[in-house]
Design a protein around this nucleic acid. Structure first.
Lengths: 366, 366
DNA sequence: CTGAAAGCGCTAACAT
DNA sequence: ATGTTAGCGCTTTCAG
């Protein structure tokens, strides 16, 4: 009569070996190197394993021994549930997931809400059993980034920050892309332009909520390289066109909510009612701004030109003028860089192409 | 002069202990139980750690010892990149991620593409260092599910399959929800109804591609409980209304692509041109079907009633008549069930509420 | 093809 | 408050 399939003490490789009166090596080989033992013996091992309810070598113990976790960690600074509402971020995750799947690796989403205390020794970033990290769009001074770096694991950065020694980076040329878009907008004749951007720093100025015009000082402390570059791109275009710097009204959104774009648009328009174009550093911002404008009876592009950035499906569907960037491919590349590091061992910077999409939300000023 | 921050051999807890001439326990305590040693000593430990580039206790070794991985695995049968294109699945993941974040746990996306060989000992499911699994909508006979169960870890099932011994389950009453929707459609006067459904089995009938009418035999072998129940719900309504069983044309879509709904609609309409309503077991199917219909000049709801299932944002925005289910909440509950198992230790079944959404895509037959 | 020995890096009891 | 002891479960040389 067969023994109970669930012995009190969970079966281990050792107990299986004892049961079969063979060495642990043999059991290990049965799982990891089938060619190292007779098919017959292997068969017996597997059968006994099933009988004893042995699930195969413990992944954690194996990881300890082999120094391979079989997974990569994805560090996102935003709360996870926000990231899941930004289609661009999502596409990125999908691309990364795809490359992990190909490589037979797991993808560990690391909980790095801004709320969590870094000092906490149990921080998930520290606890993650992974072979490397992908850092998605972190601020220059993200404390978690420091923690990740400390672990001495391979790191691939996506978008930002720029300067992580030893880390490869996948990005686009944000400045050039935004400049091209701004040149197009300026070329249409716009002279009073609003620029709605995401958070410029991890902090927010004391007492501020929602969105506010970013004063020059705020623009000097940009902890997010990407936003900085995109703003610079617009300034480049404006300057090149001989316009005054103050034809540009920059509004920073502190929150990343579905309605943030509308709120920022409102702030921009009350700061400068003569705006004829709203450029946004993300499609989600632009789409929300459009919803807001429609609610106010301001027609796009008749009364107001609106542009975005990212080229997410919904934006393209709605004809938004924007810069399309290959978010999915970013994810794939980031994964690949981790799974198959460059032969040289030196970090690489992978700059992907973007494309200006002239949609139906831009036109000459009224 | 301080030593090089990167010694050839990576610093370990033991080497730190040696350096400081204290026991390993003390170092361990410095990280895990700050209250167990003098603040002073702890300070010294941390300083030396920094000097030696010691990143803190190795997560894998700690996991082995404590038997906690600090992460839960999410097993999705579909390829990951598909899942990232279904908003309902995505919402679910977002909810799960949220609850993991709350619990300070990581979320490991396990690569379980249909392509991977289960026999492969390196299957990611086996290799995942996790404390439990969430199984999202797997077929009754999913081979990976068997593998997961073998690991003797806590398992929470979402939607399906029904019968996983020992596993809690989060679900909705698919049959009742679909029946209510079908009653509404029948109540509008429809007598020839098409039902477009996702895959009914892991396999597909030999030689089939795209979509095909599901014959009675195929309807007998439903490896997906959810689809089965939803179909049953429609049949319930039809039967209750005194209609013949053959007023219903069931079409099964074998692929899960953005255009699958349209393809299935085409199949349904050529199988029975007199259809006046297309009910779909997923919003993504319905939305695609609507696109198809529009392309053919078939107006909704004038010429054709279309209904969906899930209540994803885009569907609600487009006014689809559908059943809204709380996908995000499903994810949260699943996570919670894993992180805070019921006191009793007994598996629970958590049936969430759904809501019939009477949109603008349903009306009386032409 | 199989086995014996030696840890991987850590923490949990249990002293002291 | 700190140290000692004893593994967690596995893989990997290296010999037979």
């Amino acid at each position: 009569m067969p023994r109970s399939p669930t012995p009190r003490r969970r079966a281990t490789l050792a107990s299986l070996a004892a049961e079969l009166k063979v060495s642990r090596t043999t059991i290990s080989n049965a799982y990891n190197r089938p060619d190292q033992l007779s098919a017959d013996l292997r068969e017996r091992v597997l059968a006994t394993a099933k009988r004893l309810g042995y699930p195969g070598p413990d992944p954690v113990a194996r990881s300890l021994r082999t120094r391979k976790a079989g997974a990569v960690g994805l560090m996102i600074t935003e709360p996870l549930n926000y990231s899941f509402s930004d289609p661009a971020a999502l596409d990125f995750v999908a691309g990364l997931a795809e490359s992990c799947e190909e490589a037979g690796q797991g993808l560990l989403l690391v909980a790095v809400g801004p709320s969590r205390d870094v000092g906490d020794g149990t921080a998930a970033v520290l606890a993650a059993g992974v072979d490397g990290f992908v850092v998605y769009s972190a601020s220059d001074d993200d404390p978690y980034l420091a923690v990740v770096r400390q672990r001495h694991l391979p790191v691939v950065v996506v978008d930002q920050p720029m300067d992580v020694p030893g880390a490869s980076r996948v990005c686009i040329d944000d400045r050039a892309a935004m400049r091209e878009l701004a040149e197009y907008v300026v070329g249409l004749g716009h002279r009073e332009i609003g620029l709605l951007t995401m958070r410029l720093g991890r902090d927010r100025p004391a007492g501020e909520v929602g969105a506010a015009v970013a004063d020059p000082q705020r623009l000097q402390t940009p902890h997010f390289h990407v936003q900085r570059e995109r703003i610079a791109g617009v300034v480049d275009a404006i300057t090149a066109a001989g316009l005054a710097r103050d034809s540009l009204t920059v509004v920073e959104s502190y929150e990343h909510l579905p309605t943030s774009g509308g709120a920022a648009a409102e702030v921009a328009l009350s700061a400068n009612p003569r705006l004829t174009a709203l450029m946004c550093t993300a499609d989600v911002l632009a789409l929300s701004a459009m919803d807001y404008l429609r609610g106010r009876g301001i027609y796009v592009p008749g009364h107001m030109t609106v542009t975005g950035f990212d080229g997410v499906p919904e934006a393209l569907r709605r004809g938004l003028t924007t810069v399309a960037q290959p978010s999915v491919e970013k994810g794939r590349r980031a994964g690949r860089l981790l799974h198959q590091p460059p032969r040289s061992g030196l970090p690489v910077v992978d700059v992907l192409d973007t494309e200006l999409v002239r949609g139906r939300t831009s036109g000459p000023p009224a």
